[in-house]
């Protein structure tokens, strides 16, 4: 009976994962391996293709663009206001009246668009967290703390299926951006993604599927050692159950890889370091980039984080 309960939990979390995360690993790997027929991603590998990629996305999203047309041509306040909705695209901010961006602002504009998608991803992760049995019964302050500390780790893990050694899918799999291009962006933007590529390439060797990922994400969210938690015990109890479910899932789903559970848990240490470095980089950007504005939700999460 206990194993049956653990399998039911696994199925429940997998369903919640499918419901809340639009680009699954199955879909991402199909796109990356060219198995989606004519539906190939647009490749961004230099500044010219970055501009073309922007048009490519805008053409696909005319109704959304019309809704936000005032934000496209306006200043800082409107840029903050333009952080609305997942379909807004990967670029499309800080354009001047002629529709051409000032070239030196490209990195910042791209960074703003990434933030927009990240904020939407935080909403998706929050909905997923709420579906973990027992999560919404935790103290509300502790729910906030678990998300504040867990969400960037979850988003980092979720980048892995979108990446290979040469680049990453963005904009819901419609765009493939090369690693070399990301590396070529001016400092410190060019340094931001390299650690994620290194981590993802190693993480992908474990060959987790979407149902494994669902459990692993729940384990990360239910970390009882986050600073400031008021009531640790119920969180640890929930995590223990999900850990048992993950262990069983990996045994059944990857019978030939006996150490997979241990290997996966070891990744959590690397993950914390990557997130700490990422947050420090963002905090540095806030000080050095005068034109940078951080999305209010990401500000909330990153303030006093590490």
């Amino acid at each position: 009976p206990e194993a049956a309960d653990l399998r039911a939990l696994s199925r429940h979390l997998y369903e919640a994962y499918l419901k809340n995360f639009p680009l699954t690993k199955v879909k991402a790997r199909a796109i990356l391996s060219g198995k989606t027929g004519d539906n190939v991603p647009f490749v961004i590998h230099d500044m010219k293709s970055l501009m073309e990629g922007e048009q490519f996305i805008n053409c696909k999203q005319i109704p959304i663009q019309e809704q936000h047309s005032s934000a496209l041509t306006a200043g800082l306040e409107e840029i903050i206001g333009a952080y609305q909705g997942p379909e807004y695209g990967f670029l499309g901010m800080g354009m001047n009246v002629s529709g051409q961006p000032p070239p030196d602002a490209l990195e910042l504009r791209f960074f703003h668009s990434c933030q927009s998608r990240s904020a939407e991803a935080v909403r998706e992760v929050t909905e997923f967290a709420k579906s973990i049995p027992g999560f919404i019964d935790l103290d509300l302050n502790d729910q906030v703390t678990l998300l504040k500390y867990g969400v960037i780790e979850v988003l980092t893990i979720m980048m892995a299926p979108l990446m290979n050694k040469d680049g990453t899918l963005i904009s819901y799999g419609q765009i493939f951006m090369t690693r070399e291009f990301l590396k070529s962006l001016r400092k410190p933007f060019g340094q931001m993604m390299e650690p994620k590529f290194d981590f993802s390439v190693k993480f992908n060797i474990l060959e987790l599927d979407d149902s494994d990922m669902a459990l692993f994400l729940a384990v990360i969210i239910l970390s009882g050692d986050r600073p400031g938690l008021l009531n640790v015990k119920p969180i640890e109890q929930l995590q223990e159950t999900v850990l048992h479910s993950l262990e069983l899932q990996l045994k059944l789903n990857h019978p030939d890889c006996l150490q997979l559970f241990a290997k996966l848990l070891q990744k959590m240490t690397d993950l914390r370091q990557i997130v700490t470095d990422h947050v420090h980089l963002i905090q540095l950007l806030k000080k050095t980039e005068v034109d940078m504005c951080l999305h209010p939700l990401l500000q909330e999460i990153m303030k006093d984080l590490y």
């Binding site: 904020a119 509300l140 909330e300």
Partner: peptide
């Protein structure tokens, strides 16, 4: 904590839609 994390709190309480975000 809730005061410092209003949007997260709203997301948890279902009072923020994707459009509000």
């Amino acid at each position: 904590l809730k005061d410092k994390h209003k949007i997260l709190h709203q997301l948890l309480q279902n009072s923020t839609s994707p459009v509000d975000l």
